[in-house]
Design a binder for these strands. Structure first.
Lengths: 224, 224
DNA sequence: AGTATTAATACTGTTTACACTCATATTATG
DNA sequence: CATAATATGAGTGTAAACAGTATTAATACT
């Protein structure tokens, strides 16, 4: 376990939420490794809070699929097998296609412009060499589409699904071979939404996700 | 608030889970009404436990979308507007189509037989006049398909989405006009899976969900 | 030596107590 | 009478104490 864990307590938020975000970050970044035990007392002392907020945060992580708890045994960071990744990506494909399809229906000139800007920002950030930034601008591009879908629950689920593979995403974005293809796909999605060509955008988005699946599998296989 | 709430503590389960299930049931059945406040002390004394398990259960309800909490204000039962229902059903349609599509790929003779039996049991229960039983056998029919999809996360999400409309489901199943159509649709789904005709089953399932949407909207409009 | 039994330890599960905040009612003041 | 200041009560946020259980280590027994 790392000892990097620290809380930032600026604005008011219940401690459980601060702890939740802190632990989630740590898990997604790999600072807390799959299978590692999440011991309440230990985390409490490390974060300088009592067990109560820790417990509540763990309950939340559990429902997000990031932690698994065995009664009377305690919680640990969820292990993500290749099968789990496939499962997540299957769902994500279906929901991403739904999102872009809804976005296509709701597209306005204003949102199109936002999307265009986001697309450009992503393209620029790929040249910066800053992987985290690249991941971030990629998220922002898709976020514009999600918002246009006008279905908050769907947005929530997609964000959750995305987070579950954060580790691998960052990993494969380190490989700059993929940038041209991502840029190309973003452009196609943008064009498709501009033309309101629903069939095409759904197809591209499906493609986009399948490509991710291939990359993630590559990474998993390399690690072994 | 009803005073029916009671725990059944047979097998060992952490109290938080027992409370969670109890509250969830109460919410889905409408015993705890949308907008009703979930006060920790009150619930604790009503269920005969302390605040901690209540708090943890509320955290879980929150992540399932059944409760909403405002910091320092407390939690209340989530209000489900017509828009929320539409959103849920949009997602459910996409995921139900995914599930049946996967099930189609994985179909075995054994599972087909299970599905057949489940179909018959549903048909029989529609004649019993017991609405809860009908709802239950309907769930079981779809559960066979979900299991065949071989994606536990997907099953989880679908069960969650279904629960979010439990209230309306029970309501519209009181109307026995719908039984013939449901039976017919189940039969078509079964036949489609038997023939491994993916295109058709996806279409029917989509239809199946859209029909639910129409019925739910009817009920909502009648209530006003 | 190997196995059964007991003791110790390290947790989680649950309760209880205390701190703090927010809303409301009440009183004081112009 | 209206408005501001203040008290009070209800409820959440957090911590700390207590109870119980599972696992490991140590000991006794064959």
């Amino acid at each position: 376990m790392t000892d990097k864990l620290e809380l930032n307590m600026n604005a008011y938020l219940p401690l459980r939420d601060v702890v939740f975000h802190t632990l989630r970050e740590a898990i997604l970044k790999g600072e807390l490794k799959p299978g590692e035990r999440l011991m309440e007392l230990q985390l409490a002392s490390k974060l300088g809070v009592s067990r109560t907020p820790i417990r509540e945060a763990i309950r939340m992580l559990e429902l997000e699929g990031l932690a698994v708890t065995v009664p009377r045994k305690g919680a640990e960071v969820a292990k993500m097998t290749e099968k789990d990744m496939e499962d997540v990506l299957q769902i994500r494909r279906a929901l991403d296609e739904l999102a872009v399809s809804l976005a296509c229906d709701n597209m306005t000139e204003e949102k199109l412009q936002q999307l265009y800007k986001a697309m450009i920002r992503f393209e620029e950030s790929t040249q910066s060499g800053d992987v985290k930034q690249t991941a971030q601008t990629d998220v922002e591009f898709h976020e514009v589409i999600y918002q246009a879908a006008d279905n908050p629950k769907l947005v929530n689920m997609l964000n959750n699904l995305r987070e579950q593979m954060y580790r691998y995403r960052v990993e494969y974005l380190k490989n700059d071979d993929v940038y041209p293809r991502l840029i190309e796909e973003h452009k196609k999605i943008y064009e498709g939404l501009k033309q309101k060509d629903k069939g095409t955008v759904i197809e591209i988005v499906g493609y986009h996700v399948v490509n991710q699946e291939i990359m993630v599998k590559n990474i998993i296989h390399k690690q072994e």
